[in-house]
Design a protein around this nucleic acid. Structure first.
Lengths: 325, 325
DNA sequence: CTGAAAGCGCTTACAG
DNA sequence: CTGAAAGCGCTTACAG
């Protein structure tokens, strides 16, 4: 393994000069060429530990995720990773298994590891979060949730839900069950619901609101009751998983989707396309959001200015799970 | 941020003594207690960069994955991460986006980063791989593929496929399409196929073999042709994704699964349960395999002996996508 | 533009 | 069992 001293000797200069070359300090064209030559010949690359020890920072971006086995998470990570790699940064992912406490811990741990920045795929922001953000002197970017005190990148949940609501109404549905999630989750629990509410408020119709957990089995449980008690013509679900569970539940009751009941999802998971019937849903661009997120932390790190809140786009995807009434 | 010098001063000992405490060298009960006390009071934790620079190794396990957005990958990573965390090791994941060259590069890069070990979620092992394994002086564990020269953990593809084949036959199917993948992939392309072949060789029946890529759309393309030309009573797919595509394709042709044609998957992805009908498949225990993998590299690192090849278990899950003939 | 020197926070022979 | 010193591979004022 070559060190900076080896390069310096070969080039006939001092270590500091080589270091300057590496850190784009001012050096003459001549020495620059000489060093460049040797770098190429030897394939030297600096020892990251030594760099970090001295410079007290790294080119690592810590990414904290609530879970690894989610389509949204995976795709977002791919986007982050790609962009970071391009800029010679490295992604370090830290999984919290939906444990909020571990999320807080991770913020401190990553900071201690001297990461250059932190991207948090957030579910909710507590006071402990805010405390941690101010304690650590590392730029933090929220993805998926927003908070006025922190730089955030969110999917346009409100607009998307409004859009989807209008679409559902345009299909003639007037007896609608909305299956949402806990309001602790601002983006999914509140923004989506409110966007939808705005849409249905603009026309006279019968809407009932229900709440489930985040997993498929949770909607599998509640949907039969919804059908028995309310018998809607459509179930609008706050996530694709909920929609998948709803469809499964409908089938179990011997109903056909969309003939007997329509269903919509939210998120645009790949699997919604592969189901039968395909699930009408709002698609978010997770990978693209990841790319934007990476660019945004990098700006934060470099001190370039960037907007407080960035909105990522959406697209309504019409498939077969919604019937015209 | 406290350094080892601060602790030493507070404890009235030399830095080397504190270092010995940290690295369980021999020190007296007395000084041990004193230092322990101060550690607790101050919440000191050593600078990982300095440690790595000196000790020339880390407590990081590099994990190379071909893709991030796969159920198998995600679940395996979760298992690895959990186990590593428990043992005070850290997981660094590196995504190659199915680029073999990047896979090789990553082996060298991780080694240069002084990771303590490497776990490779492998797809195929080339000579360049073997070359890299011997070059780097870091323990390497293969997961999902085996090679006689490398420590490996695989799912029991052959047995599982044999088992599934017997099951299909027991359901009365005698005109069977097997939809496999490239034989470059030993585990999925060869072992599964051969296990299945062994099963069908034990009884007289009509079997045709086909090959697709790894994604849903690939089977979506080929399955209509299979149905038109061969018209099997069942399509046995080498992966769940292929099965999902096959079902979608069947529906598109106006056929009902399982009434008109049966389908089986392989892998036990969560979504197979949520489809309608549920997909009969072989389930692998990815997360558990991840845990075992982590334990295994740790043994390798510590020089404890461990078996060359470890087999992870499977379970046949009967659902509704297979009809009795 | 360039070099010599100090120092980042650890670990590890070497003596005692 | 313990301490003083050297050194891991870099970076960064400080002089020139």
């Amino acid at each position: 393994m070559l060190t900076i001293a080896d390069i310096a000797k070969k080039a006939g200069v001092a270590k500091s000069t080589v270091s300057r070359y590496l850190n784009n300090g001012s050096i003459s064209e001549d020495t620059k060429k000489k060093i460049e030559q040797i770098m190429n010949d030897t394939g030297y690359s600096p020892n990251a530990f030594a760099q970090s020890l001295k410079a007290k920072k790294t080119n690592i971006i810590g990414t904290i995720v609530p879970r690894l086995d989610s389509y949204a998470t995976s795709r977002t990570l791919i986007g982050i990773d790609e962009q970071l790699r391009e800029q010679n940064f490295q992604m370090l992912v830290s999984n919290t298994s939906q444990n909020l406490e571990r999320e807080i811990d991770n913020i401190y741990t990553l900071a201690k590891q001297k990461v250059a920045g932190i991207i948090l795929l957030a579910t909710q922001i507590t006071d402990e979060h805010l405390e941690a953000f101010t304690q650590v002197e590392v730029p933090v970017l929220l993805v998926g949730q927003q908070h006025e005190k922190v730089y955030s990148l969110i999917h346009n949940d409100f607009e998307a839900a409004y859009h989807l609501g209008k679409y559902v109404l345009s299909k003639g549905h007037r007896k609608i069950a909305y299956l949402g999630v806990s309001q602790q989750d601002i983006a999914v629990g509140i923004n989506r619901k409110e966007g939808f509410q705005k849409a249905v408020s603009e026309i006279s119709c019968d809407v009932q609101y229900y709440e489930a957990g985040f997993n498929i089995s949770s909607s599998l449980e509640i949907v039969p009751t919804i059908i028995d008690e309310f018998n809607p013509s459509i179930i609008v679900c706050a996530t694709d998983n909920l929609a998948i569970g709803a469809m499964k539940a409908a089938y179990s009751k011997g109903m056909d989707v969309p003939k007997d009941i329509s269903v919509t999802g939210f998120g645009g998971y790949e699997v919604t396309e592969m189901m039968h019937p395909g699930v009408t849903t709002v698609k978010f661009f997770y990978k693209e959001a990841g790319v934007i997120a990476a660019k945004k932390v990098l700006r934060l790190i470099r001190g370039d200015d960037t907007e407080r809140l960035t909105l990522s786009n959406f697209e309504l995807i019409e498939r077969e799970s919604v019937d015209k009434k």
